[in-house]
């Protein structure tokens, strides 16, 4: 699924070195304002280009708290990404996400395919990678690929959707009824 209505949020406009929780809180308020204007399916890409130093405290307050808000109270079908010039730039952010057991889609350097920054349990990692590789998967297709039950596959896809790492589309089956199809998110 290509991001519709994607917006870029340049952190460097606040300064090349961002470190305090106070600054983080202000940036988060701006981020959430941007989020409010996103259409369904839209994404906000936090761009770390031009950043020299991004402290863990700032990342925690600005970005990790924003991810936590998105999962708990945020509008559905909106996505948060981070674009980092190098893995080192996003290192502290990744550590903070991991500590909070949260995850974020990231584009690092010139990579065209996203990676997950932060914490993603192994059983979800394999499912997420398959969705990314194939572009879209139903629970049944995922179950066959992973050798797990359909119910187990459905749980994996629902959890990935809750974490805003894939999009779920409801579709009608040929023999009647509906099924969910997980769709990979693309930058």
């Amino acid at each position: 699924m290509d991001m519709q209505g994607g917006r870029r949020f340049r952190l460097s406009s606040y300064g090349a070195r961002l470190g305090t929780r106070l600054e983080g809180g202000r940036v988060r308020a701006d981020l959430l304002r941007e989020f409010a204007g996103l259409p369904p399916g839209g994404a906000l890409v936090v761009d770390l280009a031009g950043m020299e130093v991004l402290s863990g405290s700032f990342s925690d307050e600005a970005l990790v708290e924003a991810v936590a808000w998105l999962l708990e109270d945020g509008p559905p079908e909106r996505y948060l990404w981070v674009a980092a010039p190098s893995l080192e730039t996003a290192e502290d952010l990744g550590a903070r996400l991991t500590a909070r057991k949260l995850a974020l889609l990231a584009l690092v350097g010139r990579e065209r395919t996203p990676r997950v920054l932060g914490h993603l349990p192994p059983y979800l990692q394999s499912a997420w990678k398959l969705v990314q590789e194939r572009g879209a998967l139903t629970s049944r297709e995922l179950a066959e690929a992973l050798g797990v039950s359909v119910q187990g596959a459905a749980v994996r896809l629902a959890e990935l959707e809750r974490l805003r790492l894939v999009a779920l589309e409801r579709e009608t089956r040929a023999m009647g009824g509906t099924q969910n199809r997980a769709v990979a998110l693309r930058p």
Partner: peptide, 16 residues
């Protein structure tokens, strides 16, 4: 950059 990061983290701890 590493020392800047350390300064940011450690110095904000004082007011906090």
């Amino acid at each position: 950059h590493l020392l800047s990061l350390a300064m940011l983290e450690l110095m904000q701890n004082v007011p906090q």
